[in-house]
Amino acid sequence: MNFPMQLPVFSFFYWLVNTPGLGGICIALLSGGAIIVGSLIVRWVQGGGDSGESETYSYPTPALHKEE
């Protein structure tokens, strides 16, 4: 029990892990972030269709991306 709990940095860390609600905020941030990033990725992929190309492909091959 010689842990230097009285040091402000450790008290702060303990406050961080011990305060009810912070965990919920963490869950909310993580899942909210995942949902936002996920939907941004989906939108970004979908947005690839606005480039005004004419030919479409049913499947890719490595050669499809050579020129980019």
Binding site: G48, E55, Y57, P60, L64
Partner: peptide, 16 residues
């Protein structure tokens, strides 16, 4: 989602 299979779409999808 209106996926058409354009070259740029494929590029983005595979990156994602």
């Amino acid at each position: 989602l209106g996926w058409k299979g354009y070259r740029s779409q494929w590029g983005r999808l595979q990156k994602a």
